[in-house]
Design a protein around this nucleic acid. Structure first.
Lengths: 150, 150
DNA sequence: GTTGGTGCAAAATCTTTGCATCTGG
DNA sequence: CCAGATGCAAAGATTTTGCACCAAC
């Protein structure tokens, strides 16, 4: 899943932040990389680890996710279902990307690309509010579910 | 806080939904109306009730908020601080309004007006996703905090 | 060898639920 | 009167924490 170069730079990154590079931290990252399309909760990650016959305390998973968030390797998000979820950051993008959440089937589609630049400038002019980041979620019905209806 | 006509129509509204109109439900609505600018959690509401020397079980507050949400009198939201919060719905607006959340002082400013219509049409064309509602939060620094810096 | 990390269990939070009692209609 | 509402305490669910032991560096 990760080549040697990536692991090396990852190790360095942990060290730059004053953290140790441990098997457990790598394993959590592995699970996240293996499911880039899903938005996993702590519990989901524990389940995937179990499936892979890996025994890890769930407090380690929680603590690892907090660290990965501080290191800006993952981003915390939620789908308005009450669960805190995590997704790998895409370092191409300056801000959080957006999500299309289907109310019928529950599918989540990521929208890449920042669609809010104009809006943010407009808000700065109107409200004097300097925006650093945003969260935008759309709820509705995805193409598949719309097709099934008709 | 509410005049007689408003209370009458409120009572009817409860009945239309098959709910009873009780003192407790009115009191929760009172607290919400008295703090239209704040975004109160269940716990906040219990605190305000205590301040007003009103004794109400917190499960009643939780259950009341669920009912008010079903009746579309309040909307659930959060400020990414882990607390579920509620705000009164504005029936002028079709969709949820947006929020400017200051990372320095924690102030929250509501943005009225739907700024996303064009974007939603664009998303329907690109993704075939039919949008019913959205959540948009901006994080940054508010005018007051920016002024203090300089 | 230090310092930080892990695992387990206990604790802390927030929210929901069961049940006896009460109350609006 | 009766269905639904309330209050309390217990139970659930998720997340955090304390501490003994372990591992990275």
């Amino acid at each position: 899943m990760n080549n040697e170069l990536e692991i090396l730079s990852l190790k360095e990154k942990f060290h730059r932040f004053g953290y140790k590079y441990t098997d457990q931290r790598q394993l959590v990252l592995d699970v996240l990389s293996e499911h880039p399309d899903l938005h996993l909760s702590s519990d989901d990650i524990c389940e995937y680890l179990k499936q892979k016959k890996i025994k890890m305390g769930q407090s380690t998973v929680y603590r690892t996710l907090l660290i990965l968030e501080k290191m800006k390797i993952v981003r915390k998000m939620d789908l308005n279902d009450g669960f805190t979820r995590y997704e790998l950051c895409d370092h191409e993008e300056e801000h959080a990307h957006h999500h299309l959440i289907c109310s019928k089937c529950g599918s989540v589609t990521d929208i890449k690309g920042d669609l809010l630049n104009n809006l943010e400038q407009q808000i700065y002019r109107s409200y004097g509010f300097k925006i650093n980041d945003h969260i935008l979620k759309f709820f509705g019905e995805c193409r598949n579910c719309l097709d099934k209806n008709s």
